[in-house]
């Protein structure tokens, strides 16, 4: 599960072209243009490495933080079958975190450093997980629509240029398709249930509509920064294109159940582009910078896990073992 890597305008400014050997850079760009994959030991531009680390790291954090709102409902799942599915899904999300930390690690940043940066707030995770799962219907909306949005993003990213990230994403997408199907099942079950169940689902849908529009990040069509990342096949589609693809795929699946979305301006125009009211990008920025309903709790839980588990890790450590960067 994942939202798009968010780069604030200030960070984009900081990311100036590093001085790379122009000969090497030309060779690298030619290889990527041919569709060749880049492997960990290969020469790569400094910014390519930096941006990939940041993107894969944010993705990994999103997986392990994303497990928290759903984990909340494991003990209160409405029946045994739903409980089994939710446990399996949450375990998958943690597994995806492991795969992604490993992929980022091949670029030279240790997993421990990434976890430390998550806890200090230096690196981000998907904004969508800073919202609470208030009812069981929120679990249906998350499983169906947040995972659906994540799959749009991940399928696109799996065609990127960095080998280890693509391999991790292929495995992740395979497992996410189960998340989506069980989410849809849960969603349809409530939507075709009692008036009370439908009402609960509609309210959850209303709550998640904005965070879902925020999910792919602000419009980035005009950004120079994006162009370079697209050329290097780090980014493969603009935030707007991904959001449009998501709305195209999922809005009909919501409307066919006679549910509504809380936006009178949501409609597909003649050019096939979805239009919607401004989803309040200031709120998006506020939440990503720490001021969301659940930011503090998410980090507090992660920090607790880190600190409460330290004695175990220390007991396991073998001082004579030397850490080396993983191969692939």
């Amino acid at each position: 599960m994942y939202g798009n890597a968010y780069i604030s305008p200030e960070e984009a400014k900081q990311m100036q072209s590093q001085q790379d050997d122009p000969k090497q850079l030309a060779l690298f760009e030619a290889r990527v243009a041919k569709g060749e994959k880049v492997e960990p030991g290969d020469w790569m531009p400094t910014d390519y490495r930096k941006q990939l680390i940041r993107m894969i790291e944010q993705h990994a954090h999103s997986e392990i933080v994303g497990a928290l709102p759903e984990g909340t409902w494991i003990t209160r799942a409405p029946n045994f079958r739903r409980k089994l599915a939710l446990i399996a899904k949450v375990q998958d999300e943690i597994g995806h975190g492991q795969l992604l930390y490993s992929a980022a690690e091949t670029l030279g940043k240790t997993r421990e450093q990434m976890l430390a940066d998550l806890l200090s707030g230096k690196s981000k995770y998907s904004n969508v997980f800073n919202y609470p799962a208030k009812t069981w219907a929120d679990i249906a909306v998350i499983g169906f629509l947040v995972d659906g949005a994540a799959i749009v993003n991940q399928v696109i990213n799996s065609k990127g240029s960095y080998g280890p990230y693509c391999r991790a994403l292929e495995r992740i997408c395979y497992e996410e398709s189960f998340h989506l199907k069980q989410g849809h099942d849960n969603f349809v079950y409530l939507a075709t249930g009692t008036p009370q169940q439908r009402n609960m689902l509609q309210e959850a849908l209303n709550r998640w509509y904005r965070p879902l529009l925020h999910f792919f990040g602000p419009s980035d069509k005009a950004s120079q920064h994006s162009e370079k990342l697209m050329k290097w096949r780090v980014k493969l589609a603009s935030n707007d294109d991904m959001r449009n693809q998501f709305l195209d795929q999922y809005v009909p699946k919501i409307l066919e159940l006679d549910l509504t979305l809380p936006d009178p301006n949501l409609k597909k125009n003649d050019a096939g582009i979805w239009e919607f009211s401004d989803p309040d990008w200031d709120e998006f920025k506020r939440v990503i910078n720490g001021d969301g309903p659940c930011n503090a709790e998410r980090l507090a839980v992660r920090r607790y896990a880190e600190e409460a588990g330290r004695w175990v890790r220390n007991a396991l450590m073998r001082k004579e073992e030397k850490y080396v960067v993983p191969l692939a």
Binding site: E112, L316, K322, Y323
Partner: peptide
């Protein structure tokens, strides 16, 4: 809610 960096110094081998 506590703040501040977690002290992470251990690196298990891969």
């Amino acid at each position: 809610a506590q703040n501040g960096e977690a002290n992470i110094e251990t690196h298990l081998v891969t």
